[in-house]
Simulated assay, not measured.
Amino acid sequence: MQGDFFAKRRRNSLIFIAILLLLTFASIIITEYNVVKGFTSVPKAVQWAFSNFYPNEKAMNKLPDILVKLKKTVLMSIAATTVAAVFAFLFAILGSHTTRINGFFSSISRAIATVFRNIDVAAWAMILLFSFGQSELTGYFALFFGSFGFLTRAFMETIDEISSSSVEALKATGANYFPIIIQSVIPSSISRMISWILFMVETNIRQATLIGILTGTGIGFSFSLYYKSLNYHAASLVVIVVIAAILIIEYISNYVRRVIM
């Protein structure tokens, strides 16, 4: 019996691999992608990067302006994430199986979170461009909507996973709805929620660079401007500054997680 089970798993795995290979070859044929040329061009690309894509003395003169744009991008990412976290917490309370008021509000909350979570931040930016144009407000709302959907789902799972036993205990004592939220849900899940918020801040700083290219704002616009004007040395400086900022934010986030978890 056990042998049949493992044989079935191996057969299913082989079928999956065969389908995956078939789709890969079909994609290569349809797109006319030259696999050999793709791999052989990698050394040339690396050589070009080392020859052209590095900051020189002239590019370093643009560092103050790049840092100003980076500051705006980071602050916008933090603001969008924290405001989205407040709304996400409210919707998570309504949508969680542990703290929901009734099934109707829970279903509505989960449906809204699903819609917002499954639309990519870049897609939100393109949608919002029609309403707000190329402005920082477009980038802010794109990050806000993306963060709201992700955090709502994360908060729901956190509440259901961590707070269910304590909520049931308080309900058994006759506690009302709001005291349960204040005395049980928030204290038991706040550290995990802060961890999710920090993760979202890191993600949004990366996303904000792409959003800036679409909306013509922030550090992303600086990169686009330098790259399109063939100023590769300044563009490389933007990339280095963004990577450094992400690493610093990640270090701070990991330190905060170690403290609160």
Rank of each mutant, 00 (worst) to 15 (best):
M1I: 12
Q2T: 12
F6T: 15
A7L: 15
R9H: 08
N12C: 09
S13I: 12
I15E: 15
F16E: 09
F25W: 02
I28R: 04
I30G: 06
E32H: 13
Y33E: 10
Y33T: 15
N34V: 07
N34D: 12
K37N: 11
F39K: 08
F39Y: 01
V42Q: 05
V46S: 02
A49W: 02
A49P: 00
N52L: 13
F53K: 11
P64R: 08
I66H: 10
K69L: 15
L70N: 02
L70Y: 05
K72R: 08
T73S: 10
V74D: 05
L75H: 07
I78V: 11
T81N: 09
V83N: 03
A84L: 02
A88R: 05
G95N: 03
S96A: 01
S96T: 02
H97P: 09
H97N: 15
T99P: 04
S107N: 11
S109C: 09
R110H: 04
I112C: 01
D120L: 06
L128C: 04
S131T: 11
G133H: 08
Q134S: 12
T138S: 14
F141D: 00
S147G: 07
F148Q: 06
F150Y: 12
T152Q: 02
F155T: 04
F155I: 03
M156L: 10
E157Y: 06
S164T: 11
S164Q: 09
V167N: 06
K171W: 08
A175V: 14
I181F: 01
S184C: 10
V185R: 03
V185N: 01
P187S: 07
S191C: 02
L198D: 09
M200I: 06
I205R: 08
Q207S: 15
Q207C: 11
G212C: 01
L214T: 06
T215P: 10
G218N: 03
Y226C: 05
K228H: 12
L230W: 14
L230E: 11
V238G: 00
I240Y: 05
I243C: 10
A244I: 11
I248M: 13
V259T: 13
I260Q: 06
